[in-house]
Amino acid sequence: MVHERMGCSVRNGDVFIFIGSSRKLMKLLHAEDGGLVMYVKRLEAGHFKVPAYDEKSRSYPMEWRDLVIMVEGIRESPGQRLRRLRAERNVYTV
């Protein structure tokens, strides 16, 4: 898909973001030394806010900080976040 539809190379260092039509599933694809890496995040509550589409590049260009803001559900208003399920974290000591 990256090569055929987007006209890009997966190995160029960019992170390619795929979001499902329900905006609850996001996949990130990028190349590292030794192979391709894919991260998947599925939201239990809320949905991802998709940035503005750029007709010229036929993509949704963004900076790394924009991706972090989108994944974490941070809104433009300071102190506000989109609804996200909190992960239970157990701390183990050895």
Rank of each mutant, 00 (worst) to 15 (best):
G73Y: 02
D54M: 01
A87C: 15
M6W: 10
S57Q: 03
D33T: 13
L36G: 01
K24Y: 08
G46S: 01
V40K: 07
R11D: 12
R89W: 12
W64H: 14
Y53W: 07
F16A: 04
G7H: 05
E55K: 14
R11I: 09
R58Q: 08
R86K: 15
Y60Q: 02
E32M: 02
E63W: 08
F18H: 09
Y53V: 06
S22D: 10
K56N: 11
E4F: 12
M26A: 06
D54G: 01
R23F: 09
D66Q: 09
G34V: 07
R23N: 12
G34Q: 04
W64Q: 15
I19G: 04
F48Q: 01
L67E: 00
M38W: 00
K49F: 04
I17M: 05
R83F: 10
E76T: 10
N12Q: 05
I69K: 14
E88R: 14
G35I: 06
R58T: 08
E72W: 05
T93Q: 15
E55Q: 13
G79A: 09
G46T: 00
E55C: 09
Y60F: 07
M38Y: 02
P78V: 10
E76F: 11
N12W: 08
E72I: 08
V50N: 00
I74T: 09
H30F: 15
F16H: 02
M6V: 08
G7Y: 03
E88I: 15
E72Y: 05
Y39V: 03
P61S: 03
R89G: 10
I74N: 07
E88S: 13
K41N: 00
R84W: 02
G20D: 06
G7P: 05
S77I: 14
S9C: 07
Q80S: 13
P78H: 13
V71Q: 00
R89D: 14
E72V: 06
R5C: 11
C8V: 09
V50H: 05
M6Y: 10
V37S: 03
W64Y: 15
D33H: 12
A31D: 12
G79W: 08
G13M: 04
N12A: 07
C8E: 13
E63M: 11
S22R: 14
R11K: 10
Q80C: 15
I19K: 06
K56L: 11
L25T: 11
V91P: 06
S21W: 14
T93A: 14
K49S: 08
D66E: 04
K27D: 03
F18E: 06
G79T: 04
W64I: 15
L28S: 06
S77V: 14
S9H: 10
M1D: 11
R11F: 12
A45V: 04
A87P: 13
V40C: 01
M1N: 11
E63T: 07
R86E: 15
V94A: 09
S9A: 06
A52V: 11
K41L: 00
L85S: 12
G79E: 08
S22N: 12
L43T: 01
K24M: 01
E72S: 07
K49A: 11
D66Y: 04
K27Y: 02
F18T: 05
Y39A: 02
G73D: 01
R84E: 05
S22G: 08
E4C: 09
R75A: 08
R5K: 12
R83H: 15
L85R: 14
D33I: 13
A87W: 15
V2R: 03
Y39F: 05
M62I: 07
M70E: 05
L82G: 11
M70Q: 01
F18V: 06
E32G: 08
D33A: 09
C8G: 04
